[in-house]
Design a protein around this nucleic acid. Structure first.
Lengths: 187, 187
DNA sequence: GGCTAAATATGATGGCGATCATGTAAATGT
DNA sequence: ACATTTACATGATCGCCATCATATTTAGCC
């Protein structure tokens, strides 16, 4: 049954949102096309009316979710705190797509890699802009170093089976990043 | 055809080594049991004489490779430098199993998660021991923060499609980690 | 209002891969 | 030496999933 243009656009959006959550939660390979469509409230048949392949869905989902990536508005300290929280660690499906998917990008198509690259580029720029008190070289270094530590810490915290150690990785990385930013500021 | 006990042990070792390289290179899902056996110079039939399932292979491979993880001997600066090098970024198959596999552990069995947790615990301890000039609290913080940044930077560098940005992530994280360690030391 | 094309649904198809079944030959114990 | 066990090879099986074929219904246009 055909639906209105508007309905179709909404369906497409729902598919991308569902895919985004499912991919972050379970990984690209563990999510089937049918599962995505079902989560979007449709059946698997209509999929190829929206996307040319699963790889195409992956690439478009990345572009979709990375474009929507907030970045934290401006208060870097608050953003770091929420990023390195148990709440974020435990919320893969709704959490940062970089932390959830960056490591899997290596095995995806060039289009997907390209989308991730642009997402990371703008995320680094955004963090840099949140450090206006530094000179440009220090700002760039702090932005990249902090972002690497944040992403790495969440990935490690999610990999670790022991809640105490997992919490500690988040807390200590938080302290380390805060100290790094402050000390660079003071230099 | 039966082989000697010794030969069997060697075969098992070869399977684990082959699996370790293949998993790091292509990810757990993208590597088939038959592919691992072929890389070890065997056929797929004998697999279940060594392991009870692919999941079992994954868990035992992790324990195998994480136990062998060097950690760098003692010169932390040199270790950080080689870790955050283009050479290491481009050498997934032979590189750090944490950088290559940590993000995928979330989707594996409890045995695999447990192996990774113990590997991370000892790696953090090893880095901490390479910072003897710090008091215990700073040492722990520097070890965890540096390790998170190192792992995160290699994962991001491998995800990024643009060589210049990828190199920059490695270089800037290197400078950031070095500065962090030095400034903590000086405090 | 009827015609056409489009958007989804339902229902194949085909390949891949984990696991199992069976054969075979050589190592090990007596 | 012989019997037996065992490590591995060859050859199914079975289910899952990406993708395609076809049907159905309705939006969009005259």
């Amino acid at each position: 049954m055909k639906v209105s243009r508007e309905q179709m656009a909404e369906n497409r959006h729902r598919i991308l949102d569902a895919a985004s959550r499912l991919f972050r939660e379970k990984g690209f390979d563990a999510v089937s096309v049918a599962e995505v469509m079902k989560a979007a409230g449709l059946t698997h048949g209509g999929f190829y009316g929206h996307f040319s392949s699963k790889d195409d869905l992956i690439a478009q989902t990345l572009a979709h979710v990375l474009a929507a990536d907030s970045g934290g508005g401006g208060d870097l300290r608050a953003y770091v705190g929420s990023y390195l929280s148990p709440r974020h660690r435990d919320n893969c499906a709704g959490g940062c797509p970089t932390a959830g998917l960056a490591a899997a990008i290596r095995h995806q198509t060039p289009a997907a890699r390209s989308a991730m690259t642009e997402g990371l580029r703008s995320q680094i720029d955004r963090i840099g802009k949140a450090l206006p008190e530094l000179d440009p070289a220090d700002r760039r270094r702090a932005a990249i170093g902090s972002w690497a530590a944040m992403v790495g810490a969440v990935i490690l915290a999610r990999a670790i089976d022991d809640p105490a150690l997992s919490d500690e990785v988040l807390e200590q990385t938080h302290a380390w990043v805060d100290a790094g930013i402050s000390q660079v500021s003071a230099s």
